[in-house]
């Protein structure tokens, strides 16, 4: 595991322990995707409103804690501030609010909204003639929402080549309405599909940096809870659960084990 991503996972565990909030397994499946995107994107934490920036929309908004860890890693704020996660009057809600935090492009939480917003951003950037890129991260559970597929149709129909849809293929939706063969589905909607190991930062960065001629869907093969065996083996129990002190110690031990 990438050492930075390991450290961010430890931060996520610590904050979830101290705050009592957070979707840890979801966050752990997307840490590398988020980190790689921000490594590749053109952005400046000192100028979050910079017109020429690339934009990122976290469509699966409940991964906010992972998002905060990555934004802190990229100097949008100090990770220590996120200790107030979900607390009254904190800037750091369990779903991110763009009006409260620099670097957050859209307030999300209800599934199936962010991808449509990202399509509109990509369209607006093209109309403005800016050579920028828009990235959005969606989940497989989120892709039960019909609005996701509306947005994918619209994006392809207007011919966007500045939009990358990162699909967190952590197979979590096997419990009710699975999205089987997501690559085929996105391809059939007209997307350029790339399938990649969603926990390999270098591979993700290489894919994100490639020029695209159309709407790109990156099917990131991920493991929900990646990094801690307890989470991987018990994803439903841990979907929205914070560890107590004993559990935290065990999860950190698993996270720092030489092999995962």
């Amino acid at each position: 595991m990438d050492s930075t991503c390991r450290r961010m996972r430890a931060e996520i565990l610590d904050i979830s322990f101290s705050s009592g909030h957070g979707h840890i397994p979801t966050c752990f499946s997307v840490v590398e995707c988020l980190y790689a995107a921000y490594e590749v994107m053109r952005h400046d934490p000192k100028r979050p409103d910079w017109a020429e920036r690339d934009r990122f929309v976290l469509s699966k908004g409940h991964a906010a804690l992972g998002y905060y860890a990555v934004l802190a890693q990229h100097s949008y704020f100090d990770i220590k501030e996120v200790a107030g996660f979900g607390a009254y009057n904190s800037r750091f809600g369990c779903h991110a609010d763009r009006t409260k935090l620099p670097g957050v492009e859209a307030s999300t939480g209800s599934l199936g909204h962010g991808i449509g917003i990202a399509v509109g951003m990509a369209l607006g950037e093209r109309v403005a003639g800016r050579q920028t890129k828009v990235f959005t991260l969606i989940g497989d559970g989120e892709s039960n929402e019909g609005s996701v597929w509306e947005a994918v149709m619209v994006a392809n129909n207007v011919g966007l080549n500045n939009l990358t849809i990162i699909y967190d293929h952590n197979k979590s939706q096997g419990r009710c309405l699975p999205v089987t063969n997501p690559g085929e589905r996105f391809r059939s909607f007209g997307c350029e599909v790339v399938e990649v190991n969603g926990h390999n930062v270098d591979a993700l960065k290489e894919v994100f940096a490639r020029p695209a001629t159309g709407v790109r869907a990156v099917i990131a093969d991920t493991v929900k809870g990646y990094g801690c065996k307890t989470l991987v083996d018990n994803v439903n129990e841990w979907h929205r659960k914070s560890p107590d002190a004993e559990q935290l110690a065990k999860l950190l031990e698993e996270l720092h084990a030489p092999a995962i």
């Binding site: 917003i117 951003m121 607006g124």
Partner: peptide, 26 residues
């Protein structure tokens, strides 16, 4: 040209996409 979109019979996305366009200054 470039300012007109007959986007489709997808009212949820009409709003979301328009919101994203607004975010870029349109």
């Amino acid at each position: 040209p470039g300012k007109f979109y007959n986007m489709g019979i997808c009212e949820n996305s009409l709003i979301s996409v328009a919101a994203g366009m607004t975010a870029t200054g349109m």
